[in-house]
Design a protein around this nucleic acid. Structure first.
Lengths: 190, 190
DNA sequence: AAATACGTACAATATTTATTTTATAAAGTT
DNA sequence: AACTTTATAAAATAAATATTGTACGTATTT
């Protein structure tokens, strides 16, 4: 007896777990990364032990290939790592750090990359402008002069912005942010 | 004379401007919002004066409908506002604050929304679990007992996380973050 | 009141992103 | 050496987002 009830309660728990994972996936999308990263992070965090691509595929119902793609992204973001398991020739993955660390890693990585691309373009554009100035030094119409000035001024303002982003990324990466936005100790469920 | 050169230099400048705007658009995508928000922000910032939907459509080559959609998003994110211009029956839009302010607004908004959704789900799941516990109090198999405990513990950990995100959003929203990650005064272009 | 200008809802299309399928290479086993 | 197993590249498909076009409502002008 109780068999049916037990089965149905297990289903309910399963459903709750799934909803939590899906919420995490959606969070990640909001944060600008692939939702499946959130899903896998949630699962790996929940299981608390390293998992193979096959296990992840089984758990999510997605293809193994997709698991491979996403785990690679997670490695690049430094929110997961491989764990060598002797005796098995599968690769095992586990997460690195907790939710907050993952959050910090993701934003750090994204912001740094954005700042870097911006800096790269800004350099290119600045030298282009210098070149234009040099080239047309003899007959510089009022209008063109002004236009170049304006763009340079805007580039400078923009540079201040992405340099600030870089600083912010550092503030996250170093964990300094946690000094000012501390983690509250989690309470036991009432 | 100089007419051809003048035309070509103008084209070059135009191209540079466009590249900067496109970079901004790409930044926004990275940040998890529609790239066109970055584009319009860049244009409005550059022009330094309020613009109508038609002007924006003209400038971007996109449809007026799209401009309307995106401006609405920007209003919701508090990075743009309408400006009433008497005599005209068009609506004029201008940006609110500089790049950094926009950055802060966007993340504040996104993080708050994510935290809110998480909190909502967590509440639902917690009461569901309580309900399950109550319902099956008589014949609680070892296994189910443990499964519920585990999920509750995970929910608690997750709650600590999204509460932290909320705090972080507050830290951004209040501008406190700027105390610790200050804006460097921008240098004049060399 | 008819005509025009404006913004946007709604449906349709295009583009991008996520995911799967098929194919292949490398390593391990028999 | 032939056969498996594992991961992933490359191509194909599906799903989600961004964008446009059409239609319509409201306000304004004539």
């Amino acid at each position: 007896m109780g068999n049916f009830s037990e089965q149905s309660i297990n289903r309910e728990i399963e459903r709750a777990e799934t909803q939590m994972f899906e919420r995490m996936a959606d969070n990640m999308k909001t944060f600008g990364v692939s939702p499946t990263i959130g899903l896998l992070f949630g699962i790996l965090h929940f299981k608390e032990e390293p998992m193979t691509l096959d296990e992840l595929a089984e758990e999510t119902g997605m293809s193994k290939t997709r698991m491979s793609q996403v785990m690679r992204e997670m490695l690049a973001l430094n929110i997961a790592e491989k764990e060598f398991v002797r005796g098995s020739r599968k690769e095992y993955y586990k997460i690195e750090g907790d939710y907050i660390q993952a959050f910090l890693s993701i934003f750090t990585a994204n912001w740094k990359e954005a700042a870097m691309k911006n800096a790269q373009l800004a350099r290119r554009l600045s030298s282009k402008l210098a070149e234009l100035r040099a080239e047309y030094t003899e007959a510089p119409s009022e209008e063109i002069q002004e236009r170049i000035d304006k763009l340079e001024q805007q580039l400078a303002e923009w540079a201040a912005y992405y340099k600030w982003i870089e600083q912010l990324a550092g503030f996250f990466e170093s964990g300094d942010v946690l000094k000012y936005v501390p983690v509250e100790p989690k309470k036991k469920t009432k």
